[in-house]
Amino acid sequence: MLETDFTALFLTVKLAVITSLLLLIICFPIAWLLSNYRGRLKPYFEAVIALPLVLPPTLLGFYLLVAFSPNTILGEFWQSLTGHQLAFSFSGIVLGSLIYSLPFVMQPLLVGFSQVNSQYNSAAIALGFSARKRFFYLLIPLLKSTILSAFSLGFAHTLGEFGLVLMIGGNIPGETQVVSIALYDHVEALNYQAAHELSLILFAISFICLVLLFKFNRSNLGFRGANATS
């Protein structure tokens, strides 16, 4: 395997970890608020969250590229803040992945919260637990498997990201050249041998990731099963 492939692999894993961690932090309070919200606008909020699921990554990528340009408000703001520009940088593809993988982290959290909210929470309120106590002693332990599956879904989805990075990345090794791009490169350059090797590794990583995901989900299902019998 080529050295650039290792760099690409490492970069991809780094991107996926950072993206899913950031998404957990962002989505946790939003999912909490949304699962408690009963207003008329709820379907609209849910639709906005699910949009990246439907929109093609090339479309997202194109508009991000336009938005990242130093001539726009976002681009200018970022440039004055950090001194770099967003397009062709690692921060740029992290920002893109945040949008792209958002539904995959948000969805499991929403489901988890609505389950916890329904029964256990009212029981705890009846028992006189404070909100803070409920959060740390009830919510977090109950949501452990949900958080893990939200993380691994976000991670897995970011691993396979292609169209978006292709549009905003600029194919810079060690910065924006993720595995999917490196693979595409090999195929384009007719270097099928390198493409096969890299695919095999990506295949193995994704498979392990998904096995772990379904393991977590199993315990999640167990939790739901117990919930149903109660």
Binding site: N71, Q85, A87, M167, G170, N171, Y184
Partner: peptide, 21 residues
């Protein structure tokens, strides 16, 4: 300058056209 590599010549044009390069 640092190079950004587009996946084809049309995208290279797009990178400059959008003001990112």
């Amino acid at each position: 300058l640092s190079f950004v590599l587009a996946h084809n010549i049309t995208q290279a044009f797009q990178f400059v056209d959008s003001g990112n390069a």
